[in-house]
C-alpha cells in the first residue's frame, strides 16, 4: 500500500477518530475542572465530614488504575440506574479521575498563598468572599497554571484508555489499522503518533508560556 492509497483508505476514519479524541479530551477536562473545584472547596472547608469525603474521593481515584475506574463506571453506573452510552461513560470516568488530581493541584495552589496574605486581607476588613476573590484566588490561580497544563496533557493522553470500552478515538483507530497488514505497522504508529503530537506539543508549549507569563516571583 502506497502513502496515497493509505490516505485514500484511512483519511475519513482518521479525521473522525481525531475529532472523537479531541471532543473527549476537552469535555472530560471541563468536567475535571468542575469536579476539582467542588472537591477542593470541600477539602479546604471547615466542615469535617466534607473534608473527609473529599479526602477519600481524591485518594480513591489517585490510587486506582484508570482502566479499573473506567470498568467500574461502565458496569457500576448502570446498576445505579444511571445508564450511559460508552462515550458519556468515558467522559464521566476521565472527568472524575482527572478531577481528583485537579483537586490536589488546586489545593496546593491555595496552600501556596502565604498565610500573611489572608491575614492582611482580613485585617483591612475583607469578608470571606472578598478575601477569596481579591486576595487568595488570583494568587492561587497563577501558581497552578503549570500543573493544570500538565494535567491537560495527561488527560489528553489518557483518552486513549477509552478505546477499551468501544469509544472509537485515535488509539482504537490505530488498533484497527494495526490489524490491516497492508497498512504497515510502522506507518500506522507514525501517523497516529503524529496526530497526538499535533495537539500535545502545542498544548505543552502554550501552557509553558502562560506559566512563564503569570508566574509569581517569590
Amino acid at each position: 500500500m502506497s502513502w496515497s492509497e493509505f490516505f485514500d483508505e484511512y483519511q475519513d476514519p482518521l479525521r473522525e477518530a481525531t475529532w472523537v479524541t479531541v471532543k473527549l479530551a476537552f469535555s472530560s477536562f471541563g468536567l475535571a475542572l468542575l469536579v476539582g473545584v467542588i472537591v477542593v472547596s470541600f477539602r479546604v472547608s471547615p466542615i469535617p465530614p466534607l473534608v473527609r469525603v473529599a479526602g477519600w474521593f481524591v485518594a480513591a481515584f489517585r490510587n486506582t488504575p484508570l482502566l479499573v475506574v473506567l470498568f467500574v463506571a461502565l458496569f457500576g453506573l448502570g446498576d445505579l440506574g444511571l445508564v450511559f452510552d460508552f462515550y458519556p461513560t468515558a467522559v464521566v470516568a476521565l472527568g472524575l479521575y482527572t478531577g481528583a488530581y485537579m483537586a490536589e493541584v488546586l489545593r496546593s495552589g491555595i496552600n501556596a498563598v502565604p498565610r500573611g496574605q489572608a491575614e492582611a486581607g482580613r485585617s483591612i476588613g475583607l469578608g470571606f468572599a472578598q478575601l477569596m476573590r481579591f486576595v487568595v484566588i488570583p494568587q492561587a490561580v497563577r501558581t497552578v497554571i503549570g500543573p493544570i497544563g500538565n494535567l491537560f496533557v495527561a488527560n489528553f493522553k489518557n483518552t486513549a484508555v477509552a478505546s477499551t470500552i468501544s469509544v472509537f478515538e485515535l488509539t482504537a483507530q490505530s488498533q484497527r489499522m494495526f490489524n490491516d497488514a497492508s497498512a504497515g505497522v510502522w506507518r500506522v504508529l507514525a501517523v497516529i503518533s503524529a496526530l497526538y503530537l499535533l495537539f500535545l506539543l502545542p498544548a505543552g508549549a502554550v501552557f509553558r508560556r502562560l506559566e512563564a507569563r503569570f508566574a509569581i516571583k517569590r
Binding site: K157, A160, T171, Q175, F178, N179, A181, V185, S193, Y196
Partner: peptide, 18 residues
C-alpha cells in the same frame, strides 16, 4: 513522554507480531 502509553503498548506489540 508525549505519547499515550496505551498507544505505545499497541505499537510495540503489533510491531513485534508483524
Amino acid at each position: 513522554r508525549a505519547l499515550p502509553l496505551l498507544l505505545m503498548i499497541f505499537g510495540v506489540f503489533f510491531i513485534d507480531t508483524s
